[in-house]
């Protein structure tokens, strides 16, 4: 119970962030002609920002299912890497059914917070993902129903919330460790180069390639000491 409550408390800021980000998603989804209930269903079953944003575009454009499948695969493949990384920290309480269930809650922010734990217990992970799932679904419902009442300039300013959250995750460790700073700067530089020079590479692939290039350089130049990862 103590572990669950600890996870729950660590999930509060993530849930609040999700509430505002998914509010924006709700607005976008309804704007594309998707019903309020379907928008909420998408958030409950997907729990992912970039993947859902791309997904509703494909639905609105009546795109193909293969296009949908490949887009989700490319945008969300980072979760496989995160799951792989987290699998190194799981304690014995993580039985197979618990892994099957709790893996659903792996997101960028959940991963970032979970990574800061030495050892991950199933109870902690269950607590950590509970409020973010509720926040993500509730925010979508609010955005989809009340979003149209929001003035245009407030709605567009909300578009930066998700990225602000990403910066809040990467800046403190980059401040602490030169190696993380180097990796973050290389990844950003690669991403900018793909965006403006190699425009034939799609957005999802550009992110994966940029991240892998930066992480490989980081791992080659600054191999982590044992205590760094603990």
């Amino acid at each position: 119970m103590k572990e669950f409550l600890k996870g729950l408390s660590h999930g509060v800021p993530i849930a609040l962030g999700y509430l505002s980000v998914s509010f924006g998603f709700g607005i976008v989804a309804v704007g594309l002609g998707i019903s309020v209930l379907d928008a909420v269903l998408i958030s409950v079953s997907n729990l992912t920002s970039a993947g859902q944003a791309a997904g509703v575009e494909i639905i609105a454009a009546a795109g193909g299912l293969v296009e949908m499948l490949l887009t989700q695969l490319v945008i969300n493949i980072r979760y496989a890497l995160m799951g792989f990384s987290l699998s190194q920290r799981l304690d014995d309480s993580f039985t197979t059914p618990k892994r099957l269930l709790l893996s659903f809650g792996i997101t960028d922010e959940v991963f970032a917070v979970a990574s800061a734990q030495r050892v991950l217990s199933a109870r902690y992970m269950a607590g950590l993902i509970t409020l973010p799932i509720i926040g993500w679904s509730l925010g979508t419902l609010l955005g989809a129903t009340a979003g149209s009442l929001l003035p245009e300039d407030i709605a567009s300013a909300m578009g930066i919330v998700l990225y602000g959250m990403f910066l809040a995750i990467i800046v403190p460790p980059a401040r602490k460790e030169k190696s993380v700073l180097a990796v973050v700067l290389i990844a950003a530089a690669c991403s900018v180069i793909f965006k403006y020079l190699f425009t034939f590479v799609s957005g999802g692939f550009a992110i994966i390639l940029s991240a892998i290039i930066a992480a490989v350089i980081g791992a080659a130049l600054f191999p982590v000491k044992e205590e760094d990862e603990q």
Binding site: F111, G159, I160, Y163, V180, L185, A187, I208, A219, A220
Partner: peptide, 30 residues
């Protein structure tokens, strides 16, 4: 493998950074 462990340690920061830049500059429409 120390290399693979290092890779997994840096990867999340790299992913988030690549997702943020330059996309953040387009996020508000201005």
């Amino acid at each position: 493998s120390r290399f693979v462990r290092s890779l997994l340690y840096y990867l999340p920061y790299a992913v988030l950074s690549a997702m943020t830049f330059p996309a953040i500059f387009y996020s508000t429409g201005d």
